[in-house]
Design a protein around this nucleic acid. Structure first.
Length: 175
DNA sequence: TCCAATATTATGC
DNA sequence: GCATAATATTGGA
C-alpha cells in the first residue's frame, strides 16, 4: 500500500447535531472545517455518525460552531467562528459568500449591492443563485440579503426562517 | 456545446 | 402595481 493512497484522509463528512431552542441543527465537517449547516428538519434530525471516533480537531470546531450558532440565533454577531470550508463552491460563489460575511447583524443589503461589491454589478441574478447555493446559512448571512424594494426574496431553508432571523436582528422586511 | 432556469432589477403601462 | 426585457452564472441533456 502506498502512502499516496491514504495520504489524504477521505472526507469524513462528519455530522454532528446542535440542539438549540429552535430545533436541532446539523453541522457537517470536512477536513478543512465546517462545510455545511442544515436547518432543523422535522422534530428530530436524523444524525448518523459515519465514524465512531470524532477527531479532537472536529470537536474543537464543533464547540466553536455551537457557540457561534447560539449567538447568531439571538441576533448577535459571534466573536469567533470555526473555520469555514467553502471550497465546494465556484470562485464566483465564494466571492459572493465572502461579501455576505461582511454584513453585520441588523444590517441588510440588496442583491445588487452584493453584485457591485464583487465587481459585477450586472450579476444580480447570479448573486441570488449563489445565495441559494450557500451551504452555511446564518454564518454566511444570506438572510440579510433582500431585494431592492426590501422584498423578502427567497430562502433555501424556508422563508419562515429568513423572516424569523431578520426579526430577531431588528429588521422588518417589507411585508 | 447549447438550452433552460433562477432567492433580480430597470423600465414602460 | 403588474408585465416584460435584459443580464450573469450554473447545471443538465
Amino acid at each position: 500500500m502506498t502512502s499516496d493512497s491514504m495520504a489524504m484522509q477521505p472526507a469524513h463528512a462528519i455530522q454532528l447535531p446542535i440542539t438549540t431552542r429552535d430545533g436541532e441543527f446539523v453541522a457537517h465537517y470536512s477536513a478543512k472545517g465546517l462545510a455545511s449547516l442544515d436547518f432543523p428538519s422535522g422534530r428530530r434530525a436524523k444524525v448518523k455518525s459515519t465514524v465512531s471516533v470524532v477527531p479532537a480537531q472536529v470537536l474543537v470546531w464543533h464547540r466553536a460552531t455551537t457557540a457561534a450558532l447560539e449567538g447568531a440565533l439571538v441576533g448577535k454577531t459571534p466573536d469567533s467562528f470555526p473555520p469555514l470550508d467553502l471550497s465546494a463552491g465556484t470562485p464566483f460563489q465564494q466571492r459572493v459568500w465572502n461579501a455576505l460575511r461582511k454584513i453585520k447583524a441588523g444590517q441588510t443589503r440588496s442583491y445588487g449591492e452584493i453584485a457591485s461589491e464583487i465587481g459585477k454589478p450586472k450579476a444580480v441574478r447570479a448573486v441570488g443563485g449563489a445565495c441559494g447555493a450557500n451551504p452555511i446559512p446564518v454564518f454566511v448571512p444570506c438572510h440579510r440579503v433582500l431585494a431592492a424594494s426590501q422584498k423578502i426574496g427567497g430562502f433555501s431553508g424556508g422563508l419562515d426562517w429568513k423572516r424569523k432571523l431578520l426579526r430577531r436582528e431588528g429588521v422588518q422586511p417589507h411585508c
